[in-house]
């Protein structure tokens, strides 16, 4: 039953697919760059950020990485630009800008 799903492709006959199309792998969503769907982009202002960490847990896509109790910059490969983090930031440290690309000058290197 357990199959190496990497060996399955669009030429695989139906008999060789997994039962119910079960994926025998974890965290496969990482391979799918949902960031491309974004029409608005959150921009992080490190100066204003108090590291309260209210934003990270509300992101539906887990796009606000936290390391050593501090949030880092957005994971733009997967951020869909929904703006939930922006709504939740009590300190105005997140701004939404139009478009898929964060403006280069506003971007804080993580």
């Amino acid at each position: 039953m357990r199959t190496d799903v990497k060996k399955i492709n669009e030429q695989t006959p139906y008999e060789d697919l997994t039962e119910g199309l079960i994926m025998f792998a974890g965290a496969t969503a990482k391979k799918f760059n949902t960031g491309e769907w974004r029409t608005n982009t959150p921009v992080f202002d490190q100066e204003k950020c108090r590291q309260c960490l209210l934003c990270a847990p509300v992101c539906p896509d887990g796009c606000i990485p936290v390391k050593d109790d501090k949030r880092l910059d957005f994971d733009y490969d997967h951020c869909k630009g929904c703006g939930i983090c922006y709504k939740n930031c009590p300190f105005g440290a997140i701004e939404m800008v139009e478009g898929v690309e964060p403006p280069a000058d506003r971007r804080t290197e993580a």
Binding site: R2, E10, T12, P13, Y14, E15, L17, E19, G20, L21, I22, M23, F24, A25, G26, A27, T28
Partner: peptide, 22 residues
């Protein structure tokens, strides 16, 4: 230690095959 995903989105290249298997 044995992660799986149940009921993933299936593109047209797989869905018909899955229905046949069912």
């Amino acid at each position: 230690g044995k992660p799986i995903a149940v009921g993933p989105y299936s593109i047209s290249a797989y869905a018909m095959e899955a229905k046949k298997a069912q």
